[in-house]
Structure formats: structure tokens, C-alpha cells
Amino acid sequence: MSFIARMASASVLRRLTQRADEAEKIITELKATIELLKDKAAVVESKPEEERLRQENANLRTEIDALKIQLVLTEVRNGVKQVALPSQEAIARCVDKSRSQVTSSAPVVDKKVEVVQKTDDVKDQQKSKKKGKDAVNSEAKPKKGKVANAGPVEPEKMDVSRLDLRVGKIVEVEKHPDADTLYIEKVDVGEEQPRTVVSGLVKHVSLEEMKGRVAVFMLNLKPAKMRGVLSQAMIMCASSPEKVEILIVPKGAQIGDKVVVEGYSGEPDAVLNPKKKVWETLKPDLRTNSDGVATWKSAPLKVEGKGLIVAPSLRDVQIQ
């Protein structure tokens, strides 16, 4: 059913419900009027009026029944499941049966209450004994989480080696259908399947320049949807308020090569935990230096044995 049809059905349903409510209200008022007329039955002039009201009441009931039928049909057409209600006689039979069962089982209930009370007394005694034992044990045993003579806890390592930076190649690229500033790229980083990457580079890098581009990608950011497309990595760029440039990898770098930083070794996180703010903590120290070399705390980023990572022209700017 089209949107307009659904809207029309909803409108019809509202009108039918409103008319049914109004009809019920009129019936209530008419009943009150009829009762008043009955009290004045001695007055001959009231009889024709009473008969007219009776007839009008019957007509209204007929109209209400028709409205209810239309309401049910409309609900069925809109997929509303209909549930048959039990009759008044069936309800009365159930109530009578329940009363007879309650009356016949009253002594059993009393016995159950007595048993429950005794059981509760036993449980209370057991709890008090257990509390006494726990108090003794708590004095004898050290508290959980505390180790006697434990040394100082080492702080969590927070350096650039936790970032999974690798060389990758854009094998497919297109503009995002729902965002004018975004590209959707398929990137080969040496894995079995290319990764999908969403980048906000439309205003800074042309589509032709993106095709076949070899660059540095961060692979262990937590995947996130960008305008409905799941991005599985991030392309690393030098960035200023006026300009954004994709970082250049050294000649001879191969797809899947790791990008490392001198003086910082270790295995990167499988996925950076957003709650620990690892990327947010490390990001401010990722910059290009005065020679355009990508660095972290002044230590250069490089592909081992092949050369440094550099920016085309931006100097002393943030890398992100």
C-alpha cells in the first residue's frame, strides 16, 4: 500500500473512531433523557416524545453497529489482528467457577501459609549463621582485588606503536550518493578483501587524483558508519585550515607494508578502544615538520628500509 493510501486509511480510521465516540456520548445523553421522561410518565404529553427518543436511540444503535463494522474492516485492511472477546455469559461462568475453587481450597491455603512461615523462620536462622561465618572469614581472608605486598601498577603504554598504519592502494573510488563532500573508496591493504573507506576529500582532491592512489591508511580505528556507509579505515593526510594533502609513501613501498616510527616498537591494537581515547591522545603529536616529513613527537614515520613518509607541500601542520 502506498504512503497516500496509508494516510487515507489512517484518516478514515480516525473519523470512524471519532464518530463512534460521539454516537456513544449521544446515546448516554438520550438514556438520561428517557429516564427523566419515565419519571414524568403521568404527563400525557411526554409519551410521544419518549417514543420518538426510543426510535432515535434504536436508529443510533444501528448506525453505531455499522460504524463498528466499518472500523473492523479498516483495521483488517491495515493489518490489525482481530481478537474475539468472550461473551458476558462466559465471563460470568468463569467468575462463578473461580469463586467455588477459592472456597473449596481455603484450608489448603492456610496450610501453605503455615509451611511458608516455618520455611522463612528456618531461612532466617540459616542466614544469621552464614553472616557469622562470613564475618569470621572476612577477618581471616584479604579483601578481593587487593594483593599483599603487590608492586606498583604499570601505566598503560600510550604511544604511536598502538596505531596500525599500513601502505594501501585505492582500487575503486566514487562520490558518496548522499553526501557531496565524501568519497567511497575500495582500498587494497594486502588483505584477502579490500576495505571500504569513506573520506571527506571531495573539496581537496579530485576524483581522478584519487584513482589508483597509493597512500598510508590507519586500519585499527573502530569501524563507523558515515552517511549510511561503514568505513573500515582512514586515509592519513596533512591538514591545514585551507588545504588537505594525502601523504606520500616512499618509492618501492609495497601494498601492506607497515609504517613505523623510529624509537617506538610494539604490536598495534587490534581495534582502538573508543572509551580509552587512544587516537584522540596520540593525534596532537602527529605532525609534519619543517621539511614536510611526517612525525610523531618529532620522530619520523617511515617504511622500514624504503624511506620516509612526507607531505607534498604542507609544513608544520597536523596529520589526521
Rank of each mutant, 00 (worst) to 15 (best):
A92E: 15
K146T: 12
G79M: 12
H176S: 04
V259D: 05
K38N: 11
V260G: 04
W279N: 05
E154N: 07
S206I: 08
R15C: 07
E75H: 13
R52S: 10
K131I: 09
R287M: 15
H176K: 05
A92R: 14
G266L: 03
K251L: 12
L301T: 02
L13D: 08
A58M: 09
K222R: 13
L201Q: 04
D285F: 02
G263K: 08
Q254L: 13
A8D: 11
I246S: 03
L36W: 07
R52I: 06
S98E: 10
N59R: 12
E245A: 08
D178W: 01
I319C: 00
T28D: 08
V198P: 02
V214G: 02
E262D: 15
R61C: 10
T33I: 00
D134V: 06
Q318R: 12
I246K: 01
P274S: 09
V44Q: 14
E209C: 02
I34M: 14
S206R: 01
E209Q: 14
M218W: 05
I170L: 10
L73Y: 08
K297L: 12
E22K: 08
V83S: 11
V278F: 03
P142G: 04
S105D: 10
K127G: 00
K283I: 00
E75L: 12
K186F: 09
S11G: 05
L30N: 12
N59A: 15
I319G: 03
Q101A: 10
T288N: 05
G151F: 06
V173G: 01
S98R: 09
Q82A: 10
A84V: 11
A253F: 04
I4V: 13
V109G: 07
E51H: 11
K112D: 10
K251T: 12
N78C: 11
E262C: 03
R162N: 05
V160D: 01
V260Y: 01
K47S: 07
E49F: 06
F217G: 03
L16H: 04
K81W: 02
A224N: 04
K127S: 04
E63A: 09
K133R: 13
N57G: 05
S104G: 00
I309S: 03
G307T: 05
M234I: 06
D257R: 02
Q126C: 08
S298T: 15
A148D: 13
L13W: 05
G256Y: 05
N57F: 13
K203W: 01
S298K: 12
E174Q: 13
S11D: 11
D269C: 10
L282Y: 04
S9A: 14
S290Q: 12
V249S: 03
E45C: 00
K123V: 15
T295E: 07
A42K: 09
T103F: 13
V116S: 11
R195D: 07
A90S: 14
A233E: 06
K131L: 11
D134L: 14
D178P: 00
V259I: 15
N57T: 15
V202Y: 04
Q55Y: 11
E63V: 12
K68A: 09
I91G: 01
R77K: 13
K127C: 07
K225R: 13
E35T: 01
H204C: 01
T103A: 15
C94H: 14
P284E: 09
V303E: 07
V249P: 00
G145K: 03
K146H: 06
E304A: 15
K275E: 15
